[in-house]
Design a binder for these strands. Structure first.
Lengths: 215, 215, 215, 215
DNA sequence: CATGAATGAGTCTTCATTCAT
DNA sequence: CATGAATGAAGACTCATTCAT
């Protein structure tokens, strides 16, 4: 009758952490990167000190959100792999990732600032990278991908759409879809032959490393 | 006893304004939006007070830069019109505008914050809009433009690339070209038939207004 | 069902108190007065709450250390009394007390802040005072003490040397001895006549109370 | 009629700087090192920002006070040199420096924290050192100084007395004199032969550098 | 008009102390 | 009793903006 209870002490701590992360996610998503940790604390219904207990500083909090976001993206990519064709899988993942990013102002900035990323985030990022690579490779095997486009380019294009979303959210919330579709079509057209697109391979990046951090 | 020839004081004022705008452009381009107005003043070789005499506040200064940027873009568009074909003109303008944006960190943010734009900027923006429309229309007349794409979409796509440029500038300065070309090709392929692209018209924006402010 | 033999819980309490005092002594000695009570708790292997259970606040903890220090000093003075001559006893005690103080950064500050001293500390202090008085009196009876110097002055001179030790510890750990000896010689020369010293009695303190708290 | 005016603009700036330094001196002297810069600003009748305009940070302010203090000490030493005998000069300087230090809580701490001293402070300190050396050498030439005592030891003994003063100021403001005289007599007796004192040379410091920063 | 000194609200962060588990 | 999570009052410092000279 005792092996089930575990350590009760952490109960509220866990709850508060969740409250903080939720509040932070919401606030950052709504108002961008210049929210105060006081704001976060207040929105979470806790004191500032509590926020600082969980996250050494603002960047760490951002890093925490980032890790959560990576998890969602990994899920998304894995679901995409369940699609019947590689083409559908890639399009599905790209549009899904854009959607996610579009609903969350400041996350991509977080990616940048949280540079000295936490262990957890780094691992998730790596894992995400591998799954996304698989998605892209599968579509490429079907001849459905713009020549030269690789898994490394995925973060760049989603982040690109994210920036549009940030800019147009207030006036025209869904406007990013217009450009999201443009880009997704450019990377992986919905159907039909690829010849015309494939005519000019993308210019190679100067280095082989990922151009921007995944988002 | 004072209405003689011209106004001598205006001369300094004009020169100072130019110094301030130059310094601000350089600093904002290099270091992004968090430069102090003290930094700007110092780089311009004037006092902070002088900056505030010319521009009511920071956003107004940003607006001033924006106006200057519009001028450059207008020039660019007019030069593009000199190209032999509409297709070449559009591609030339798009890539040029991206180049400009890529060399200037924080300008697109400026666009957002300088919302209550100055008279001057508003007029230039309008003028830019007309010329760009002409460029796009000419290319469309040749059947060289993705169905549904209009002059209103141009700022969005250049701003999109700008955000990539901001994110990748430090590690891989030219990386944005990879995505710039992807997008330009999607909007207006370098040659060949357009059928596959034209198959799916872009989703219409919810409103007819410009989705994002021009950049 | 609980009034059996002794109080078992007290055992832990006593052990914890000792752990806390030890950890605090070490930390304060090493790093001075700005150690966190979290640091103390961690070093002691207990929670902060436990520290607060034993000591109402930080000053009380400092007071606790003080009491421990008094005990050591009492021992030292009693050992000194075992010396063959009063002169040797006084010199021995003074140098020993300086040594103790020199090895312990921040203790003298503790003395100040822990002003509303605990019962325990006050009693020990009183006891220390009596023994030290005895040491001084014995040396004075031998004509070996600077005219006007009393037991009340002892804490002042050791604290004085302590401050030098605090300042020079990092660069030159033993430097305080140079001044310690200067002062001990001034109070009680190692041998020879005292005439030259005794020529000018020390100026009387304005009040008869102890000038500084003992250390 | 114009070469006399100089630059009027600095007038209030200079006045404010003086207000700040005065307020800081007073507050630090009274309450020690933990005064807020807000307190200083308020006492000076200016805003915090003004304090930060003059002094990059708290340590810089402390450093500024330190420099002023060095100046006073240099003056004191030079006046002391005017005394008829070396003995009188040394005693005069030592007691004067102690007096100065005793009237100023926290200055010696300032010395420590302002370690990365300003150019100005470093130069004054050097200059002070040379004059004090001269004072000590002159007394030594008269055979009036405890064997082994040098100019390098002067800061240590004044700082030592300063610490007593800090501790006893509240209860017995002049109490430090009792110990100041004890130490001065030990270093340089008011008259009479020195033989007994000179019998035991001070233990040499481990290094030849100054044991503590001058105060 | 130009200057740069002054302002002070606002930001991040720390830490002594309290209290629910 | 022990624990460590939570609290929030400060403190150091920044910077957009105002205003006396």
């Amino acid at each position: 009758m005792s092996t089930t209870t575990a350590r009760p002490l952490r109960a509220d701590a866990v709850r508060n952490r969740a409250l903080i992360v939720d509040a932070a996610r919401r606030l950052f998503a709504e108002r961008g990167l210049d929210v105060t940790l006081h704001d976060v604390a207040e929105a979470a219904g806790v004191g500032v000190g509590t926020v600082y207990r969980r996250f050494p500083d603002k960047d760490a909090l951002l890093g925490g959100l980032l890790a959560a976001k990576y998890e969602t993206l990994v899920d998304l990519a894995e679901q995409a792999l369940a699609e019947p064709t590689g083409r559908q899988a890639l399009r599905s993942y790209l549009l899904g990732a854009m959607e996610l990013r579009a609903s969350d102002r400041a996350l991509s900035t977080a990616v940048l600032r949280a540079a000295p990323q936490t262990q957890e985030a780094a691992e998730l990022r790596e894992r995400l990278h591998r799954v996304v690579e698989e998605v892209v490779d599968r579509a490429r095997a079907e001849g459905a991908v713009r020549r030269g486009f690789t898994g490394e380019d995925v973060p760049a294009v989603t982040s690109m759409i994210g920036s549009i979303a940030d800019r147009s959210r207030d006036e025209l919330p869904g406007a990013w879809r217009r450009y999201g579709l443009l880009v997704v079509d450019a990377v992986c057209p919905p159907d039909g032959p690829l010849e015309p697109l494939a005519g000019s391979p993308l210019p190679a990046p100067t280095a082989t490393s990922c151009v921007v951090s995944p988002s």
